[in-house]
Design a protein around this nucleic acid. Structure first.
Lengths: 144, 144
DNA sequence: TTGAAACATGCAACAAAAATACATATTATG
DNA sequence: CATAATATGTATTTTTGTTGCATGTTTCAA
């Protein structure tokens, strides 16, 4: 049981950008370097977040991305719902006991409990350890 | 986000066997036929459940499997913990912000909420719709 | 007005994990 | 002793997620 790296990266980008000065544009190359992950893949993740309205991107030289709205208004559960494709924990479509199966509802209940927790957090909540972020990204933050 | 088919199959086997008459031995071939899934794979799942003490198996002709303990004493959460390999929702090992990351704890909290729900169910709870099962497996139940 | 730096997008290749198939051994029954 | 069942290890296939590559577009500044 795990989330895709796609979702993982989406959250990392939001955390990174959210830890920056509000107006600052972070180039994707910088973010991918900071995490040591594929710039190509990250580009797609970022683009997805832009289209979903979480990030604002500026093209061209000295471009980059920043939060499109306050971190307090970005809900973690909503982001995960957006980036994670399927939430079918098991494949009931091909199972003949589906109509009589008590597992389906138990799993649905468990999933709801899972998402409810994430729905209770905003990006701002996750950024409470902001000072610690600043230390980690100090080099990047200061650069340029 | 999804569970492996391995876990799915494990639960299906328990539900199938739990719906049978207590003493009856269900051959794996019968179960795999009922669900239309690979007998070989199912064999491994079953074997795992036998070793874990959920099922009792009898070899040889007219052999098969049945529950090793009452359905009320088989906890869904425990089964899922057993069959599902990893519960690392994201890969924090390779992430430099891990020490400052508020996501880690939020995900842990969400996962705990998820498992807590499953821990609240026994196989017997899931079998409440037993009559419906009987109808679905009627053919199999009656056969020898 | 041109080059460089950045985002945007689609397609192809690759890798990892999960599922399935195959082969063979063991056990029990009639 | 043949048959039907579980047990176990290895190989193959499939799926899905990830990465890489190629190309296009936008913006800025020298």
């Amino acid at each position: 049981m795990r989330l895709t790296r796609y979702t993982d990266y989406a959250m990392r980008v939001l955390l990174y950008v959210g830890a920056q000065d509000e107006e600052r544009l972070s180039p994707i190359s910088e973010i991918s370097r900071a995490y040591g992950i594929s710039q190509n893949h990250l580009m797609k993740v970022v683009n997805d977040l832009v289209n979903a309205g979480y990030l604002e991107s500026v093209r061209g030289r000295f471009g980059g991305v920043r939060l499109a709205r306050p971190a307090a208004e970005i809900n973690v559960g909503a982001v995960v719902r957006h980036t994670e494709e399927g939430f079918d924990l098991v494949d009931c479509g091909s199972c003949i006991i589906a109509p009589a199966c008590g597992l389906t509802s138990a799993l649905a209940e468990a999933l709801a409990a899972f998402m409810k927790v994430l729905d209770g957090y905003s990006l701002a909540d996750l950024l409470h350890k902001r000072q610690a972020f600043a230390a980690l990204f100090g080099g990047e933050l200061r650069r340029k």
